Simulated scan of single mutants.
Amino acid sequence: MFGDDFLARQRVLVITPHADDETYGCAGTIARIKSLGGEVYVVLATAADLRHFGADDAGNKVKLVSRGTRMGEFEAVMRLLKVDDWDVLLADPEAHLALDVVPRKQLVGLVESKGRLSIDRIEPTMILIPAPSYNQDHEALYRACVTATRPGVPGERHLVPFVLAYDNTSLFWSFDHERFRPNWFVDISRFLDVKIQAMRLHASQVRPPIYHGSPEGLEMATMLRGREVSVEAAEGFAVLRALV
Rank of each mutant, 00 (worst) to 15 (best):
R200G: 01
R200V: 02
V111C: 02
L81Q: 09
D167I: 00
R179G: 10
A242H: 10
V231N: 08
G54Y: 03
D4S: 12
P215W: 09
G115Q: 09
D4M: 03
P215G: 05
T16W: 01
C26L: 11
V244F: 15
Y24W: 14
G72S: 06
A148W: 03
G236Q: 03
D85H: 07
G59P: 03
R181A: 13
P215Q: 04
R150M: 14
P17R: 01
S189N: 04
H202F: 10
G59H: 06
H212I: 14
V14W: 06
D20E: 14
R9V: 04
I188L: 02
A98M: 13
L201S: 06
K105H: 12
S133L: 05
N60C: 13
A19T: 08
A233P: 03
W86T: 05
E228I: 07
Q197M: 11
E139Q: 14
Y166N: 06
A242P: 12
T29L: 08
S189G: 06
P130T: 10
V206W: 09
F191S: 09
E139G: 03
Q205A: 08
R51G: 01
L7C: 09
A144M: 03
G59T: 10
L164V: 08
V194M: 02
L141D: 01
C145P: 00
S170C: 05
T125G: 15
P124F: 11
D92P: 07
M199F: 01
V160Q: 04
Y134L: 12
L81M: 04
D85L: 01
P209V: 10
K34T: 05
W184I: 07
V160F: 03
L218T: 04
A47T: 13
C145H: 01
V163C: 11
V62P: 00
F175G: 12
F74R: 05
H96Q: 07
F180T: 02
G115L: 04
R70A: 05
W86N: 10
G25L: 08
I30S: 06
M71H: 02
N168P: 02
M126F: 07
R150S: 12
L171S: 02
R104F: 04
E22F: 03
K195C: 02
V153D: 06
R179P: 01
Q10H: 03
S66D: 08
E112I: 01
L44Y: 05
R9M: 12
L44A: 07
P103H: 04
N60I: 05
D85K: 08
G109Q: 10
V12F: 07
S174D: 06
F172D: 15
L218M: 12
M199D: 00
Q136I: 13
E94K: 14
V40W: 08
E228Q: 13
I33K: 07
E73K: 00
A58S: 11
E228S: 11
A31T: 13
V206P: 12
N183E: 00
A19E: 09
M78P: 01
R70C: 06
E22H: 04
L141E: 02
F185H: 12
